[in-house]
């Protein structure tokens, strides 16, 4: 067959084998840790050199779900992440909009300021915040940890909404104003409905920033605020592998649910009827 007549996809068929191999490797590297965690959480006895555990048990699950420790940590994490998500979006949305309206060096400086807490290692950030929050009497408290989580979350989200507002069309707002809408009405009736999807995505990002936070919770919470990541690490360090695996699996649930919800939302909002 004439090579010129082949489409790009046909020409690439020579690499199909490699592509499949890479995809399989990716799937294994993604799924294997979760499969191992799942197996670990229900292992009975599992010693080297056995490839599989000798028996399965739900004892670790019953213990974890029955004990108050995991439940409290789960509730604390969920409350912190939810609050970070809502407050983070509420603060970052106008911040991102304000940044997008800046021009030239002002915009660069603003974006750099938003990026700073994102780029700073959480441990360093936590150490710095600890001084301020302790002085404010918020060290070791839930509000203190929430404020600490908000710092990187607002930075992330401000940059996220900066991107959104950089492509924003102000004409619907102008049209609404001359049609009689006040600034507040424009915000509620025009801007927010048009931003439903970015806000949903931003809320998910804000939730995850807090949900996976470890160093900030440890430094600012001073051990008094126990979130799920802290409990998982405590079990792992104590050699309680089954309990640590259960906790790790519980950590995965909200991000997985968030991504599933986002995928569903994206599918709902991007389909344009013919």
């Amino acid at each position: 067959m004439d090579a010129v007549a082949l489409g790009a996809a046909d020409v690439m068929t020579g690499h199909t084998g490699w592509r499949h191999l890479v995809l399989v490797a990716l799937a294994v590297s993604s799924a294997a840790p979760f499969a191992l965690l799942a197996l670990w959480s229900v292992q009975g006895e599992w010693f080297f050199p056995a490839l599989l555990p000798s028996g399965l048990t739900t004892a670790a699950w019953q213990s974890a779900l029955g004990s108050g420790t995991f439940g409290l940590a789960l509730a604390t994490s969920a409350a912190l992440a939810s609050a970070t998500s809502v407050l983070g979006c509420a603060l970052a949305l106008p911040a991102g909009r304000a940044l997008a309206r800046l021009r030239g060096w002002r915009r660069h400086v603003g974006a750099a300021a938003a990026f700073l807490p994102v780029a700073t290692p959480p441990l360093a950030l936590g150490t710095g915040l600890q001084v301020v929050l302790l002085a404010a009497g918020l060290g070791g408290t839930l509000p203190g940890v929430l404020l600490a989580h908000l710092v990187p979350a607002v930075g992330y989200l401000a940059l996220f909404f900066l991107g959104t507002f950089s492509l924003w069309d102000v004409r619907p707002e102008e049209a609404a104003r001359t049609l009689g809408a006040t600034r507040g009405q424009v915000w509620w009736r025009v801007v927010l409905p048009a931003l439903r999807r970015p806000i949903a995505e931003g809320a998910a990002v804000g939730f995850l920033v807090s949900w996976t936070q470890f160093a900030l919770t440890l430094t600012v919470g001073a051990g008094a605020v126990r979130t799920l990541p802290l409990e998982v690490l405590a079990y792992a360090r104590a050699g309680e592998d089954r309990a640590a695996a259960v906790g790790a699996l519980l950590l995965i649930v909200p991000p997985a649910a968030a991504f599933a919800a986002l995928r569903w939302a994206v599918r709902r909002t991007t389909v344009v009827p013919a």
Partner: peptide, 16 residues
Amino acid sequence: PERRDMVYLHQTPVLF
């Protein structure tokens, strides 16, 4: 703008 009793229509129609 909302208190001027004037409606401004953009070059291309802007609908919500």
